[in-house]
Nucleic acid binder design. Structure first.
Lengths: 329, 329
DNA sequence: GGAATTTGTGCAAACGTTTGTATATTTGTC
DNA sequence: GACAAATATACAAACGTTTGCACAAATTCC
């Protein structure tokens, strides 16, 4: 392994000069700079990043923490963040928490031990408060998607309330009458806001808000099924779902009961996962623009921001929510 | 930031002893070990991994290189590898190449600069040979899924030939007569073998192999569409597809042409991506068991193996390939 | 042409660990 | 109780960079 000292010796200069030359410091003469660069190339020099990081007391790695990597949403957040961070000379270290608090704690500790330059985090469902985030010490943290508003620092979130409002309003305008919601976990602000948006839309339409047809703590396929069956029993004819997987479960459960979608029952999901367009009927979904969210989170880190950025959400209307009536407006 | 020197001073001993105590060396007395551990806890000590890595001349990071993170297949490989590596005390650094050779080269250089303990790689489609892998120097490399057999070191691959054989045989047994294949890129061994398996099945059934109905260089949705239209024109009544996305494109193109699947035309994909079960008709797919592949690749790295491991592939039979005839055998 | 300034390079100390070797202490043996 | 052996700790040198400071040489200024 060739080091800057080797280069220095080969050139009869000191490692400091080599270091500065490689870093492009204006303090070295042009001639020696090109000499160093050529020699480095010739000797096959590879910079030892760990040594540099140790000396500089910080690394060029940014940690990205996601609940689960295989969810399209998070995979796209990662891609977005990576596109910005790589450009700025950073590398990313991706960590999955599997929605578990203890894994999240372990992961944050690891990132801290690596002295990463920053962390972009979307917390696990199991994490009910921001206490454990303090483990990061003074490493800059950007929260995205699922955020704790009581914890200081930059945040990037979807326009959840506004989005859920649009989604629910769309169901109302499609002519559905008793619209429930699969609401997710109230431990996460994102879901709280979606519920708020749903409620706002309902009440704006002059319909009284009915807590009995709000199905909390459902988010995956199986719990979506269960919630849908309850909703059916309660006389609902539509559901706004806080996720696509629970929406998928809902669709399946209803179809098994012989309920026709969208004729008898309307469904809207959230996230606009790839599979939603392939379902029968294709699922209307509130898209979150994860790629942009990742880019924005990365920018927030780079610029050292501490504010909150809101990423618009767009309703992708498909078959599962369009009744025979023509969509008004 | 508290260091082992701080702990040593607080305890009136030397950093070396603290280091050994923390590492669980048998050379330190039980008493001092617990004293060190308690003090470390009390002072909120966090090990500086970069310093340790520098001294040990290797890092605790294993690089995982994937073409695209958002593909279920690779996301699951990552999860599998992570499960084994974390257990063994390693952390993973995930890199996407976006199927581009220059990005792959850049990524490998970065991993090398980080002195990672090892690399698990599935090369980009654009990478046509193994030349650029030498950039890793003496860092152990495990190739998985897409591998270069001419490059030394451990490899973990799916039973592509055998799998494609099963998939094609299934189409034959379902009663399809003229079976083509969307074959992918012949620059990648995985696709070469799938084609070989297809051919073997065809010929074993006494059907002459017909290169005219082998559609190469198709792998994504759009190219799958194009290939399917050509196959239709050529009089095919079935296609074995080397991927699920090109299979999806094929299904869509055929359906638009009014071709009924599976009645008029049979389709089998490869990878068993999540969405295949949600399509109409549900897509029969040759599943690759990516989670196991990731685990195996990680084990190959840990054990320093240099052999080739083959992961069985299982055919998930769904509607897209079952004609009215009963499946023989 | 001497003083002041600029420019380029060298020196050496850090960054926080790990680890081979040396030393001090304890234990065991006869 | 002297000596060997085992045990536990200390010493000090690395690992490969970066960077503040010092210093020499070259340039500028009056």
């Amino acid at each position: 392994m060739v080091t800057i000292t080797d280069i220095a010796e080969a050139l009869g200069i000191t490692p400091s000069t080599v270091s500065r030359a490689l870093a492009g410091s204006p303090r070295v003469k042009e001639d020696t700079r090109v000499a160093v660069l050529r020699k480095a190339e010739e000797m096959g020099y590879q910079r030892n990043i760990m040594a540099a990081n140790l000396r500089k007391r910080r690394s060029d790695i940014v940690g990205i923490v996601v609940p689960r990597i295989h969810r399209q949403f998070f995979a796209n957040v990662i891609s977005g963040a990576e596109s910005i961070l790589n450009e700025a000379g950073y590398n990313v270290m991706i960590c999955q928490t599997m929605e578990k608090l203890d894994v999240e704690i372990k992961v944050l500790r690891t990132l801290r031990n690596h002295q990463v330059a920053g962390v972009l985090l979307s917390h696990a469902i199991e994490a009910r408060d921001s206490k454990h985030l303090a483990a990061l010490g003074n490493i800059p943290l950007v929260q995205y998607d699922r955020v704790f508003f009581d914890y200081p620092g930059a945040k990037v979130v979807g326009a959840n309330c506004e989005g859920a409002f649009k989604a629910t309003k769309h169901l109302i305008e499609s002519g559905y009458r008793k619209i429930g919601t699969i609401a997710g976990f109230m431990t996460s602000q994102a879901y709280v806001e979606r519920l708020a948006g749903y409620r706002l839309a309902i009440e704006s339409a002059g319909i009284p808000f009915n807590p009995d047809i709000v199905y909390e703590n459902a988010i995956v396929r199986e719990t979506g099924r269960e919630a849908a069956l309850k909703a059916l029993e309660a006389g609902c004819d539509a559901l706004y779902c806080c996720g696509d997987f629970c929406a998928l479960g809902a669709v399946e459960a209803l179809q098994e009961k012989g309920v026709r979608i969208p004729e008898d029952f309307g469904i809207v999901g959230t996230a606009n996962e790839f599979f939603t367009s392939l379902m029968t009927p294709a699922l209307t979904s509130l898209g979150q623009n994860p790629y942009e969210m990742g880019r924005e989170a990365a920018r927030a880190f780079l610029e050292g921001r501490t504010d909150t950025t809101v990423i618009p959400m767009e309703l992708q209307i498909r078959s599962s929510s369009i009744r025979n009536t023509i969509c008004q407006k």
